[in-house]
Simulated assay, not measured.
Amino acid sequence: MSFLQVVRPGVQSTVQDSGRRGYRHHGLAAGGALDLISYCWANKLLDNPRNAACLEIVLGGFHAIAHGALQIAITGARTRIAVNGQAVEPWQILNLNDGDELTIDHSARHRLIYLAVAGGLDSAEQFGSRAVVVREKLEGRGPVQAGDRLVPLQPKRKVPERTVPDHQRPDLDEETVIRLIPGYQYPRFQRADIIRLTTSSYTVGDQSDRMGFRLQGTPLSSPPPGIVSEGIAQGSVQIPGDGQPIVLLNDCQTIGGYPKPGVVPTLDCGLLAQQLPGARVRFELCDLAMAQNQRRLFELHYQNTRWCQTGQELEWL
């Protein structure tokens, strides 16, 4: 049996897939990979199923040793990755042999790194998912620890060398623009505040994690008063009394009582989740149909493309 044995898990490493479905009414967060684009490409490189579990590493600092031959893929935040001390590039297939040491240095500019293994990671499944939500403190569902074994769920045939084309990789270095789909409470906000929200530049606050990102900038002057607590969708933008936006992410609470001008699409939430404190962010109004079409195209591309023989491009089936 081949596996990766963790020597050092870094700041925090958790097993994530695409998250839970149908359990929010029980008070359980959706969980799942924050950066959907990087997560999916790590699996796509290895021909893994769309929902295969992989490792989400926060800020790097990861070290593991291969036992047996393994194929892996690493995507997400840019940092130095090395096998036996020799630097290797991310966003491609990496072949590990028995005894190889994998190190992922700390990322200085972005937050999330994804490590997938051929066949997907084998871990306990609960509520239809292998995703770990640390704050729920469910037994046996915590972060990866030193000494843990990362075991493939099922053996897979060896895949040839592949590299994600540059134009398919998310550009994390530009100012992050996150789209805002107006919600049903949008009319309750004053027009001047909506203009302020969509023309101002915000910075990511220190109090940002898998539950949500607090943004800091020019506050909305007259946000609506609190509302009766109601269900919350992933990506909801809450405006508390201080007028500073909070974008709720995968591990957010299931109900809340702050008014919300709208929702950020999932793909844009991933771009936001990659940002470190102090990074600049701005909102841009978006039509619902446009966001839906982009997500639909993203999913169709995953399911209906295959790698060319060169391993450098994909072709539609």
Rank of each mutant, 00 (worst) to 15 (best):
Q292N: 12
I37P: 03
A69F: 04
K158F: 07
V7H: 03
P223D: 11
G256A: 04
K137A: 13
I239S: 03
A124C: 13
R80D: 12
A192K: 10
K158L: 10
N95M: 11
L288I: 10
K44E: 08
G256R: 00
Q303C: 11
Q253D: 12
A42F: 02
L267Q: 05
G140Q: 05
G147M: 04
C40L: 14
L112V: 08
L45F: 07
A273V: 09
E284Y: 04
A42R: 01
A82D: 07
F189T: 04
D209Y: 05
R80F: 04
E284V: 14
S123M: 06
G128F: 04
L314I: 15
Q294P: 02
Q303T: 13
P219E: 04
P170H: 06
L180F: 08
R196A: 13
I72L: 07
L28I: 13
A146N: 11
K158R: 14
V144Y: 01
C40E: 09
V117W: 00
S123W: 07
E284F: 06
R135G: 11
I232P: 00
R135S: 14
L102H: 08
H301C: 11
L34G: 10
R280M: 08
P170S: 09
H25L: 12
R50I: 11
Q234V: 14
C308G: 12
Q275V: 07
V204Y: 00
L150H: 02
S236L: 07
V133A: 07
H110I: 04
S18P: 01
P259K: 13
A116P: 00
P143C: 09
A124G: 14
G212E: 01
C269V: 05
Q207L: 12
V151S: 11
T203Y: 02
G22H: 08
Q207P: 09
L36E: 04
R24W: 03
G140A: 08
R80N: 12
Q303Y: 14
P182G: 07
S229N: 10
L276M: 13
S38R: 02
I37K: 02
